Structures are given as C-alpha cells and as structure tokens.
Simulated scan of single mutants.
Amino acid sequence: MDLSTTIYDSTQHDNFYPAASADHGLSVSELTAFINDLMATLVLEELGSIYFNHLQVLLPIEGLSLSDFDARWVYGRASLTSVPLELPVNNVASLDEQAHNAYYYLTQTLTMSQRTILVQLHDMFTKQLGHALAYRQLHKMATKDMLTGLGNRSAFDEALTRQLGWAQRHHEPFALLVIDLDNFKTVNDTWGHREGDNVLVTIASQLKGLLRDEDEAFRFGGDELCCLLDCQSQQQLACAAARIQHNLKQSDYLNKRHITCSLGGTIYRANDDAGSLFDRADKALYKVKNSGKCGYHAA
C-alpha cells in the first residue's frame, strides 16, 4: 500500500523524518491488546468504536470515518478536519460493488514508523470488518420474512427489546400496532395459497410505502403484522392506524379480494416489558375482531 502521495511531500520538508532512535513500532502487548479487542465483536458499531479508541492511543488521529459503508459510522472529530487520509478497504463484500475507503483525520503528519503502524492496524481492522459485514448480511437473511421482505418474528423480538431499552433509558415512549387481515382465510380457501401470498406481498408493499424511516414493520406470523412506531401519544397512534386503513382501502386488488384489516395499538408505559406491551395491543386487536372487524382500538 503506497501512502507517499497522500501523506508526504519531501520537497516541503528537508528533515521530515525523525531520527530512527526516536521512532518505534508496536510492542507485543499493544498488538495483542488490539487484536484481542478487535476479535471480541462482530457488531459493526462496536467494532468501529474499538478500532478508533486504539488508534487514538497509538497514533496522532482525532477522527475516523467509515461513511462509505454507513453515514452513522463516524468517530471523533472526523467532520472538523478538511483533508483526511484515505486508505482503501479491500476484500470486503459489498452489495453495491463499489470501492470503499476508510478516512483518517490526523492531528499531525505521520512518521515512517507511524505510517507502518497505521497500515498494519488498518489491514487487521478491514479483515475483521469484512467478517462483521458478512455476519450482518447473514443475520438480515435470518431475520427477514422471505415472502414479504419484512422483518420476521425474530427481527420483531430484537427490535422490540431494543426499543424497550431506549424507552427505559431516555423516557421516550413509542407505539406498538398489531394488524390482522380480515377475510384472509377466505382468500386462501377460494383462490388458493398462491393468491394468499400475493395479498401478503401487497400489504407489505403498502406498509413500506406508508411508514417513516424511524418506523419498522414485521410479519409476526401468518396474516398478522406488527409495526413499531415513533408515536408518543394516542392521537399520533390513531392517525397512523387511520392512515394504514385508508391506504389499504384504496387498493383495487385488495377490494376485489374483500381484504380489510383490524388494528390494535398501545403506547409504551413505564415498567412495560415485551410481554405486557404486546398483550395490551393484542387484546385491543381482538376487541376489534369481536365487534365486527375492520376497525381500530387502543389500549
């Protein structure tokens, strides 16, 4: 890997490099600590943070950006320095098949030994980054409903646990909406399960178009769907439910199959756990189902 054109300009610095005695590489203990910490996780956000923390101790680096992969993966003061050092991230599988770089923001020019250290650490980090990205892709496949493209039951459980943790730490409520399709069994019995699959795909597509970036939809099982919504009041939740119902009623295809939906919702309350939150929304749903379907109730 040649960094000379990016880091050094020998015509500007007659005595650029310090004396060899002032320069040193990584000690065995430093390298061992780095490898052990790096190998301890395949969670991408944690991996970037661990890597940056080691860089700050070992090198004059104030920021690291992995924004070629995700705009959120920026560490330190990466946005405050105008000219970063770019190093290619090779041998990392990417869905868009584009070249990716890691961007390092320096507080001073690197010495030759520091340059060697950075290349060494960068190479080890990018190998683990490749493993983490592959793990994330496998995890997505394992938590996605292959028919609709929505998250499956496992994905819902994970997302709900994550939302509960956030709500408990920051005292910010969220909403759970449970959706059950009316007359879905009739579609399967009359037109077959392939047509039932088409109904589910259509519903999923409608939900994806309706929900905001901060909301998530899941196929909980069969013809039951769940949404985790950034709603903090009953009024906001009622508006979201009405929007979903209105949108589905506008579908000529669903109308021909006599498909409507019943919805039950609830807002997070202090001391809620996954069971209490879901049970409350589910009971609200069955009040709708028992009172004629095609409606919404909040608990």
Rank of each mutant, 00 (worst) to 15 (best):
M1V: 13
M1T: 12
D2Q: 15
T6F: 15
I7A: 11
Y8L: 13
Y8W: 15
Y8C: 07
D9P: 09
S10H: 14
T11H: 15
Q12R: 15
Y17M: 11
P18I: 08
A22Y: 06
L26E: 01
S27I: 08
V28A: 14
S29Q: 15
E30C: 04
L31M: 13
F34M: 12
F34I: 13
I35D: 10
N36D: 12
D37P: 10
L38S: 09
L38E: 09
L38M: 12
M39G: 05
L44T: 13
E45L: 13
G48C: 06
G48Y: 06
S49F: 10
L55R: 04
V57G: 04
L58T: 04
P60G: 04
P60I: 08
I61C: 06
S65I: 07
S65Q: 01
A71P: 07
V74W: 00
G76N: 06
S79C: 01
S79T: 08
S82P: 05
V83F: 08
L85H: 01
L85I: 05
P88S: 08
P88H: 05
V92Q: 10
A93G: 09
S94H: 13
N101Q: 12
N101I: 07
L106I: 13
T111Y: 05
Q114I: 03
Q114F: 04
T116Q: 08
I117F: 00
I117T: 09
L121S: 03
L129M: 14
L129V: 11
G130A: 14
A134G: 09
L138S: 12
A142V: 11
M146P: 10
M146Y: 12
T148M: 11
N152Y: 11
D157N: 09
E158M: 10
T161W: 02
G165I: 04
Q168S: 11
E172Y: 09
P173E: 00
V178F: 05
V178L: 07
V178S: 03
I179Q: 01
D180N: 02
L181P: 01
F184Q: 06
T186R: 14
N188F: 06
R194H: 15
E195A: 15
T202P: 10
T202Y: 13
I203H: 06
A204V: 09
A204Y: 11
Q206D: 07
L210F: 06
D215M: 11
E216G: 05
R219Q: 06
G222Q: 10
D230H: 06
Q236N: 02
L237Y: 00
C239N: 13
C239P: 02
Q245P: 02
H246V: 04
L248F: 06
L248G: 03
Q250Y: 07
Q250F: 07
S251V: 08
N255Y: 08
K256N: 15
K256G: 12
I259T: 07
L263M: 01
G264D: 00
G265N: 00
G265S: 00
T266A: 00
D272W: 00
D272Y: 00
A281W: 02
N290E: 10
G292P: 05
C294P: 04
A298M: 08
